[in-house]
Structures are given as C-alpha cells and as structure tokens.
Design a protein around this nucleic acid. Structure first.
Lengths: 197, 197
DNA sequence: CCATTCGTTCTACGGTCGTTCAATCAACGA
DNA sequence: TCGTTGATTGAACGACCGTAGAACGAATGG
C-alpha cells in the first residue's frame, strides 16, 4: 500500500513532524526539566518554527502533557501477585527493567516533578494504583507506609542513577542493584528475612 | 550593652534586613525551586526592593549559594562508627532527625537539584564525604554501591515526605519510618539480618 | 554642624519567554 | 483545472526576567 519511493503524503508528513517535535520535547524535558526547556529550543531541535509547536500542541503545558505520556506498554510494571514474596519479586523485576533503560517520557516527569505541579500530579497518579495494590498485598497494619517506603526507594534509586548520575549507582549493573535490594524489599513487603548468601 | 528601647543602629538594621532577605529566599527556593523563584518575589516577601537584593548578594546565583548554606551545626549528621551495625544506626538516627524537621536551606537544594547544576553539585558535595566514610565501614567489596543505595533511600524518603508530600510518608512518624528501615539498613551495611520482632 | 557614608528605592535597559496572527505555498478534492 | 485546505513560516506583542545605575535621605563621624 505505502510506496516507499513516493513522496510522503501530507498526513504522513504532518504525523512525522509532530512526532519529531514530541521526541525533541521529551528529550529536552527529561534533560532540563519543565522550566528550562523553551518552546523555541524544542522547535529548533525538531527543525521547525516555534509557531508550529504552538499550532500543533496549543501551549507549553499541553506539549508537556503529550511528551509525558508513556508509550503504550511502558506503563509501570503490573505488580501482580498476592503473597508478600511475590509482590517484592514483582517490584524488583519492574525496578530491574527500569534500571536497564528508563523511557524519556518517564524521565521528563521525574525531572520536572519537583518544580512543576502538573508533573508532580502525573507522578502521583501513575504510582498510586500501583502502591494501592502493593499495599493490599502486605499483611501488616502499616501496609500503606511500607508500600510508600518501597516506592520511595525505587524512585530514589532511579533519580540518583538517571538524573543525578551518581557514579556508584550509575555504573552498577541492574542485577547488582536488584540483588542488594532484594532482602530489603522482602522485609518491607512483610516476608521473612532471606538468609544472607 | 544593647538597649532594647533604642532604635536599632544602622549595622544592626542592615544585618536584620539581610537575614530577612535570606529567610525569604530560603523559603521560596525550597518551595518553588531555583528557576521559579524570582529576585523580585524574594524582595517583595522580604519587604524590600529588588535592587537591594542585588546590592547585597550580587546575583541570583550568589543569593542561592548563600540561601543554600546550612546553618552551623546542621551539617549532615556525623555518621561515625566503624562496625556495620554502628554505621547503620548512625545513619538511621541522622535520618530520624531530618524526618523531624528538615532545614529550609537543605530543602532548597533538594528542590532545585534536578534543574540547577549548582544545586546538584552542592548536593553531591555535601553527601560525598559522608558516603565515603560509610563506604569505608562496610566490609564487603561492593561497599561503594551499598553506601550509594543507602544514600538513595534516605533522599528518596525525604523527597517524598517533604517535597512531594505523599500522604503515606508525610503523615508517618519518624520513629515508624526509622523502625521499618532499620533491618534494611543493617542488611545493606553488611550486618546480620535482625530478627523480625 | 557639616561632609560623608550607606541603606534603600526608582527607573530603565536588553533579553527571552509564551503566545498570536497574518502570510505563504504546496497538496488535496471536486 | 481551480478553489480550498492545511502545513509551515516570520514578525510582532506584551509580560517578566536579571541586572545596572542614578538619586534620595537618614544615620554617622569628625
């Protein structure tokens, strides 16, 4: 159907341009945060005029919203499982996946969440159902707090690895990090302490 | 010597004004981050003109540097001790103190570190000697990574409690949090797992 | 008492930002 | 073929920013 030699149709070209802008926006929001990325700079990086960005996305806020959408299937790992041990393992494997390669959209939210209310709310909304499910699987009465601590640990590690790029965490392999955190997660999830190898 | 009824001398007044500006700056940097706080807004909050802020501090960067200085004695807790157990306990009590009341200067750095290079460097420089000492007290070969993880956990918890104000962590008492984290810290520091009570 | 310091305010400049809008011109549908 | 749509540009506006520097006036010191 689509002839690769043919000049792209107008709709194709439009979609291509729009995605180019989104990709540039994601990169800049992730690198610089919301306030320091400018529409003009995004447009320049995408090779278009700033007015076009406005025309397609309406406002800087709306552009951020679109850039912060997680690509389908990149939703935070489905932490299923009912026993504390299963919950801990599911969170660890989700963490491991994020340590391999965190998507730019997610980094844009993380980079901006401390200075932009929209990003903070997006971060909260993304994590809440996850934490609720984890909390429900923890048998103790302080399950909510334990789930909150698990989330804080995950995000503390990701922030230092990807946004601050601290050597100790940035250089380590995901397996190393996950293995060190495993007993902690098991303890916080309410499972028995694992024997130290 | 200082007569309380007397009108303040010029030097006193100057110091008072300067500290008022610094207090307002600390509050705003902590609440809004570096980019969103403006010199004009700091001046307004302190009840003075923006030009005066420039005159006293020279530039916005310099103002941030002064506002980010920790008040004497608020330096990150001296994590002394040589055994893994002592290190973990020292970190926990330092964390407990910070969970009681984190100083505004420290929050200003934390709030800004993801978008401001100065703040990020200040954060790194403040934590590094601490992490080095912790690392030296951990007997395993991956001591550096373990120390980095401990630091990431501490800051993840503080960020979610003070900057994002997530209910689960914001409402909990410092003792609760510290007690839940204790076995994790002991494990990461290389001590034996504590029996779960 | 007078000259001087200096805390403080006012005004203004150059720059950048988000945003708007008219203009252009190639692709499209009838 | 021709009118229309729509992708794209360029110039401009108003607001706000960090910063500079002149001006004022009260405290200060001789």
């Amino acid at each position: 159907m689509t002839d690769p030699t043919a000049r792209p149709t107008r709709a194709q070209q439009r979609r291509r341009t729009e995605e180019g802008i989104l990709a540039a926006a994601r990169r800049m929001f992730a690198d610089l945060g919301y306030e320091r990325t400018t529409i003009r700079a995004v447009a320049r990086a995408a090779g278009v005029d700033a007015g076009l960005v406005m025309h397609y996305f309406g406002s800087k806020d709306a552009l951020f919203s679109r850039a912060a959408e997680l690509p389908a299937g990149e939703a935070p790992g489905e932490v299923a499982g009912s026993t504390p041990g299963e919950v801990a393992e599911a969170m660890l494997s989700a963490l491991g996946a994020r340590l391999e390669a965190e998507p730019a959209a997610s980094l844009a939210v993380l980079r901006s969440m401390l200075t932009n209310a929209d990003a903070a709310e997006r971060y909260r909304a993304a994590g809440e159902p996850l934490l609720d499910r984890i909390s429900a699987s923890i048998p103790t009465s302080d399950a909510g707090l334990r789930a909150g601590l698990l989330g804080a640990i995950v995000h503390g590690v990701i922030i230092e690895r990807y946004l601050l790029r601290f050597g100790r965490l940035a250089d380590a392999s995901p397996e190393e990090i996950v293995d060190l955190l495993r007993p902690c997660f098991l303890l916080l999830a309410g499972a028995q302490a694992s024997p130290n190898s």
